[in-house]
Design a binder for these strands. Structure first.
Lengths: 308, 308
DNA sequence: AGCATTCAGTTGTCAAAGTCAACTATTTCA
DNA sequence: TGAAATAGTTGACTTTGACAACTGAATGCT
């Protein structure tokens, strides 16, 4: 079981947010429809065509309750019952033209209410924080769905973010201490300081607005002429198993080739097993190994090279 | 009004979390008490002694409903009505011994439910993320209350965090670009690289588990012997106006004196008005000014010095 | 093919939750 | 001092939610 302090924080948040949701729902009292009617209408609007069972599932409502509610909405000419097709147990439902009007109205109302209650009182910086935290919670708790992966250059603030994330991640996963954060702060500072844009690039992997991973390429510090170095490859645990690491490495290799490098090398630790398998599959070959004590741990450093 | 994309994200989150809360509340159906009874019992347990009106306020419940509910709980010997004192309109309420037992039981149940539904399926890293995001949302949306301010050394990951936060903050507040982030990444890397612990220290201001601000002191780069430099003072917008900046500066000055420095200097920009007023109040004197173009903006750099 | 099981949806029955207005006894404040 | 506000109660009512029993259709198993 989780840490008591964490559980306490989660419960505090749940109580707090229950209250917030209550406040937001108060706005609905003005309308001709009840709250659960509005919810059903919203679901139908979003889904286009669904069945009663689907709505009950996503809303967590009782099927009996929903049955009556749908009946009411049908009699009000807001919901239309389509002819049964395929599975003749279920009845396809859709909004009528009027229903879509009502949905539009509800959406506008809810948007306004959410904006004025939650966002407007905050500064833009705080708004960004709030939205970011919400996106994070959704990403952590919702079922992962296939969202598009984007590789792009870093935005302002993301260098710090990458340092932060990797420092915490390897601290928890590998037990590495602050020395690691110190090292990577320098590594990122050096990357930024490296001259020009020729031959160096950093990619941020983004999924649904979240940073899902990153890597960068720059001229190797002390290698032969024409050697690129791949550094700071990492994938957020939340987004692992979707081939993001391989995508990042592939992108880096493509870039290194296009930039005229003759080979690309990297330094990693053998305890990072999933990274190693990505390098192997990408064609990297183990060139050298050496034991060292860093970041408060006994490590086995490995140099991997891919000749083009 | 806020950005449509932000509003959409907030609404998505609200729908999502409404569902989550519904799932968590399902566990209550096993108990002898109803959900709102449990809520009231929880509130009374937490508050010790309150009145009906207070509970109605914090729970967002109807006073009529609560009146009947309290009546029921009193007849079940879970809640005791204390003799009216002071304001004779209101009736002080408290849990009986039995009520406290029930509350204890509820808490254990809710804790278990929250843990197994939300925390246990996640890795420790993700758990930390989740709790952090929840704490952030609470801090952003709840009324600020006087919580204790702690000044402490940075934890693993916080150097990156400080870089990230300041880069985003000044990007949004002052329009500074990535150059600023590049610069401060280097500054923090240099701080970490500076020799020994004598004469250098970094403080993180923490409020309710959130980083509220930070500053550090190290030997001045190119000053005379015995000169300390104060750098990277910042306070989170959310926590401004509570004297955190002044506390950080005071701590830094005390430290610099105790470390044997003869004076302390700092470099800032005159557009950072609230910081300037903190320096002035702490006794710093403007030593030099120079215009420069940095971070994509025309700035007026200022050197301030405090001789001990 | 035959039969038990599962699933979508409906209906009946209740209990609980929530809304609204009217009312008393205090307290506050102009 | 008197009008307005506050804490709490009571009555009348609607909506929500829970649960069991039921029909008709699909699925799975042997």
């Amino acid at each position: 079981m989780a840490e008591p302090a964490d559980i306490a924080q989660v419960r505090t948040f749940n109580r707090f947010y229950t209250r917030i949701i209550g406040l937001l729902e108060e706005g609905m009292h003005q309308t001709l429809h009840t709250l659960s009617e509005a919810r059903v209408i919203y679901e139908l609007d979003k889904a286009g065509t669904t069945t009663s069972a689907m709505v009950a599932e996503t809303l967590g409502m009782d099927r009996a309750q929903l049955s009556r509610l749908v009946g009411k909405l049908v009699s009000q000419d807001i919901v239309a019952v389509l002819p049964r097709a395929g599975d003749k147990r279920s009845v396809p439902l859709a909004l009528t033209r009027e229903g879509r009007e009502v949905a539009k109205h509800f959406n506008a109302m809810s948007d306004a209410k959410a904006a004025e209650t939650l966002l407007d009182p905050l500064t833009p910086f705080e708004q960004r924080d709030l939205v970011g935290a919400m996106r994070r919670i959704s990403a952590l708790l919702a079922e992962p769905e296939d969202a598009t992966l984007v590789l792009r250059p870093p935005r302002v603030g993301e260098i710090g973010w990458l340092i932060h994330r990797q420092a915490v991640l390897y601290h928890l996963e590998q037990g590495w201490n602050g020395e690691f954060e110190t090292l990577i702060t320098r590594i990122y500072a050096d990357f930024e300081a490296a001259p020009g844009t020729q031959g160096k690039q950093l990619w941020v992997a983004e999924i649904e607005g979240e940073v899902a991973g990153s890597v960068f390429v720059l001229p190797a510090e002390d290698g032969e002429e024409g050697t690129a170095q791949l550094r700071m490859l990492y994938v957020e645990p939340m987004f692992r198993g979707r081939g993001i690491g391989a995508r990042l490495v592939a992108e880096a290799i493509t870039f290194a080739k296009a930039s005229g490098y003759k080979r690309i090398m990297l330094w990693t630790q053998d305890c990072l097993a999933s990274a190693r398998s990505i390098y192997q599959k990408a064609g990297f070959v183990l060139a050298q190994e050496e034991r060292h004590h860093s970041f408060g741990a006994d490590l086995n450093g490995q140099y991997w090279v891919l000749e083009f």
